[in-house]
Design a protein around this nucleic acid. Structure first.
Length: 595
DNA sequence: AAAAAAT
């Protein structure tokens, strides 16, 4: 227990940060951002708190709400070390330069090429430098100026594209510029602030970020802590499975930016701990996933049936890997005159992941896995995906008995165990992690050498997300999938992915895909798109122009109805057909699971 | 025939 003292192991990086900062911010004159060596007089250490990311303790700022929000608060070396010395979760930007981005909508702001191209203020620029971000990723190049110019945004982008920073940086920058505004008065009316003590009954966050899974919420929160370093903004996170009392106490210390999973947030609202009256920035992350998980009622409750400012008053950003009809409807309801951003796929276009598909019968999977593991270096991180929670437990047990240091993560484990498993995996203490779908999306674990699909998913999007856990930060990655006759439904899509990523295709897979295509009708139709985009702005082709009204009948069916799609062909049509059901995506999901 | 998520 206890925290390690601050050690300036990384002295070089501070000066790098300083240089980067100075090259930008010298118009403001001499800044105190990196020169102030004084200890902050406020704040304290919190031991064993929830959501502390890696450590057992963390420095907790106690921001004063008054004063100039655009000016950095004093430096705190210990906090700085805690926030920025961790493994670099940044992206190798060069690798991502060829990812195509398409921005559509009226008066779309021009994209930037460097973080210096838009004025985000000295706090944000300082934290960008401390995070060692050199250049914006494609989604950041486009999203940052869009958000900065106060436009609503619908972005189709996957995790791993740098989208968390793409919305956090401009939102925080805007908050620093504008100050707390109404939120401060509300907080004062609600309790204290003036005397600087705890005990506010109700918090009025200026920005709200909704995420589908608890771990993802935690990860976004960790990013928010970095980018709000030396500011008056205090980020908080709330999610289920953790002690609510502790979360409430954390909220009561001040909350300007809240990251939440929907269920727990509704709970907090009903308890009167959170008011959304002054929420100026709303982000829905992984929106398609949230709908898949049945969060729509909670989301609508939060956005439409409470005190949240109306669309057009607040600024709303939606992120989604796909753009099926349900998401289009949500976009119509939540967004005003939005810019649509389509960002090319990261996982499949990146050739630094070697994808292998091997035929393995169910009964042979375990021994095959052992062979793979024994061929892998002892310390390299291996992520093994299975389809069910029971399967995860059983496989973890098996590997443990075989003498492997492994752990597991799935929805039936306690939140504490889930977070511990993740930490043990990240740190290399347990270099093998057996996981269900909970770990497929969003989680940023660097240095995963090998992703093994012990069970293949039935959904190609899920596959792309899973293999995207490796090959990050420009590293080489390996993804091995066990395929057998239970995986017929993914054959065609898997083949498409392998071809697109220029991977070796087993001949049996090719012939299987050929057979499958002739057997199946609409259902087997590919959900993927040519051109590497996850989706497209349906407004461009919908009758009535691009001002947004999704009439339900306005859209044109581009593909024709029920036609067979040739190999690799297609285009974008199947997400915005005008028939009663719209997207083929949702349709096949409904058919498959029967709900 | 599943996983995830408020209790």
């Amino acid at each position: 227990m206890g925290f390690t003292g601050y050690e300036n192991k990384d002295a070089g990086s501070w000066s790098t940060a300083k240089d980067t900062y100075n090259s930008f911010g010298n118009n403001r004159g001499k800044s105190a951002f990196f020169n102030d060596r004084g200890n902050s007089s406020r704040g304290r250490f919190e031991h064993g708190g929830f959501g502390g990311g890696g450590g057992n303790s963390r420095w907790v700022e106690e921001p004063r709400d008054d004063g100039d929000w655009s000016k950095p608060t004093p430096r705190n070396e210990r906090l700085e070390h805690e926030l920025f010395s961790g493994s670099n979760t940044g992206i190798n930007f060069e690798k991502y330069d060829d990812i195509p981005v398409e921005a559509t909508g009226q008066n779309c702001p021009r994209h930037i090429e460097s973080f210096q191209d838009v004025d985000m203020g000295e706090i944000v620029m300082g934290n960008i430098a401390l995070s060692r971000y050199t250049r914006p990723t494609p989604v950041q190049k486009y999203a940052i100026p869009i958000v900065k110019s106060k436009r609503d945004l619908m972005a189709c982008a996957q995790t791993g594209s740098g989208k968390t920073a793409a919305f956090l940086l401009p939102i925080l920058s805007q908050i620093y510029t504008d100050g707390p505004g109404e939120a401060l008065n509300a907080a004062k009316a609600s309790g204290q602030v003036s005397n600087g003590k705890y005990g506010r009954r109700k918090q009025y966050p200026i920005s709200l970020v909704l995420a589908p899974t608890r771990e993802l919420a935690l990860q976004i929160y960790d990013e928010a802590r970095k980018f709000s370093y030396r500011s008056r903004v205090r980020p908080c996170v709330v999610y289920g499975g953790a002690d609510i009392g502790q979360q409430i106490r954390d909220l009561e210390r001040g909350c300007h930016l809240l990251v939440a999973t929907p269920g727990r947030l509704v709970d907090m609202m009903e308890r009167g701990k959170i008011g959304l009256d002054h929420c100026k920035y709303l982000v829905l992350d992984e929106a398609d996933r949230m709908l898949d998980m049945g969060f729509e009622p909670q989301i609508r409750r939060i956005v439409e049936q409470d005190t949240m400012p109306h669309k057009g008053v607040r600024q709303t950003m939606m992120f989604s890997a796909t753009f099926p009809k349900e998401i289009q409807i949500l976009a119509r309801d939540f967004l005003e005159e939005y810019i649509f951003l389509a960002v090319g796929r990261v996982g499949s276009t990146s050739e630094n992941i070697t994808q292998k598909v091997v035929w393995v019968e169910e009964s042979d999977k375990r021994s095959f896995l052992l062979d793979l593991l024994s061929a892998t270096g002892k310390d390299s991180l291996t992520l093994v995906f299975v389809e069910t929670k029971k399967g995860a437990d059983a496989l973890e047990d098996f590997l443990y008995r075989e003498g492997y240091a492994c752990t597991s993560i799935h929805g039936d484990r306690s939140q504490r165990d889930r977070e511990e498993a993740l930490n043990q995996f990240r740190s290399g203490k347990c270099p093998i992690l057996v996981a269900t779908a909970v770990a497929a999306r969003g989680l940023d674990i660097s240095n995963v050498k090998h992703v093994i699909n012990f069970d293949l998913p039935s959904d190609i999007e899920e596959y792309v997300h899973r293999i995207g856990r490796t090959g990050r930060v420009g590293n080489l990655g390996l993804a091995t999938s066990f395929f057998n006759d239970k995986n017929g439904n993914i054959t065609k899509d898997l083949l498409d992915i392998l071809v697109e990523a220029k991977q070796e295709v087993p001949s049996w897979l090719e012939s299987l895909a050929y057979e499958h295509q002739h057997k199946s009708s609409n259902r087997g139709r590919s959900k993927r798109f040519s051109g590497g985009f996850g989706a497209r702005d349906y407004r461009q082709t919908a009758a009535g122009g691009n001002t947004g009204g999704f009439g339900g009948r306005g859209g044109r069916n581009q593909t024709g109805h029920g036609g067979t799609r040739g190999f690799g062909g297609g285009g974008f049509g199947n997400f915005y057909t005008s028939d009663g059901y719209g997207g083929n995506y949702s349709h096949s999901q409904v058919d498959w699971w029967g709900n």
